[in-house]
Write a protein that binds this DNA or RNA. Structure first.
Lengths: 161, 161
DNA sequence: TATTGTTATACTCTATAACTATA
DNA sequence: TATAGTTATAGAGTATAACAATA
């Protein structure tokens, strides 16, 4: 093992470089660090559209699943219903989606994207794909597919009671 | 002007199942979902030890790099210095680490793990490895190594100016 | 009684600005 | 002036409890 490069110190010697070798093998540690990088990058990409990761995700899901309810959206986004309310509020206030009453069940709202929302989403999606290419550009198509497949399996394995 | 929202003819019918096919190809989306599962699982694993992901990480890094400063620890953990203070406070209050003054530079502290801290860390680390095996058990050794290597490359690619 | 959407609340994580004490 | 640690603060994300309206 390599000793410190300041041999004259007594007890409190500060290491030249910090080793994270023990943690590096843990999937939680590696995943967190990679995710933080991606999240920060995505936030920068979405900033010009005044979207965050959560609002972008919600907008995309509403666009792809017209008429879905807030409960359905919350479940799809893996967040609790109370947390979704503010997200839907924000998108509705900005005129990007609508909350439509459902005649057959007056408790629920059917969410729809507006033409404004669709336009913004189209531009944001282009920017996101462009930025993903920048990050994933160094990976081969096989590596990228393997990564996403592995992540999906990890996600599925976490179905906890 | 007619605020014609939502595609015409789209009745407010709620879809049977919600599709996230558009998002699934985005690394940010897949990574977030997998990370959330792992984070929740890790939190449950560390709960009996009254540790969180951040305090466990800090404790491990202090154990592996005796005498490191808070600035070094903050940089290693990729968090801002102010956020690290409360983490170190908590670990010190619980008697798991010590803050030792450095004679050669009285501005800095040298962090050291205590024997209590080392004992707790050993038990927590065993539990974490056991739980990681539970999550990663469905992956082959090659898949696991490939995943960690890919995550590391993604992390490195995000070195933003 | 159960469910949808909601309000209120709290805790964690992250970030920035500004202060102190040292260098 | 520059740096290490600190305080204060703010913004997100996430979680639970409890409520009104509706089923």
């Amino acid at each position: 093992m390599a000793e410190d490069s300041a041999p004259h110190g007594t007890a409190p010697i500060q290491p030249e470089s910090v080793s994270d070798a023990t943690l590096r093998g843990l999937i939680g540690y590696s995943m967190k660090r990679a995710f933080m990088v991606i999240r920060a990058d995505l936030a920068r990409t979405l900033e010009p559209f005044e979207l965050r990761m959560m609002t972008f995700t919600a907008l995309t899901l509403v666009a792809d699943n017209p008429g879905l309810s807030q409960s359905q959206l919350a479940q799809a986004m893996a967040v609790e219903r109370p947390n979704l309310v503010v997200i839907v509020d924000e998108l509705e206030t900005r005129g990007l989606i609508t909350r439509d009453r459902v005649p057959t069940d007056r408790r629920t709202y059917a969410l729809h994207i507006t033409s404004e929302g669709a336009q913004l989403l189209a531009r944001a999606t282009r920017a996101v794909h462009q930025h993903e290419n920048g990050i994933m550009g160094k990976l081969t198509a096989e590596e990228e597919a393997a990564l996403i497949a592995t992540l999906k399996r990890i996600e599925a394995s976490g179905g906890r009671s």
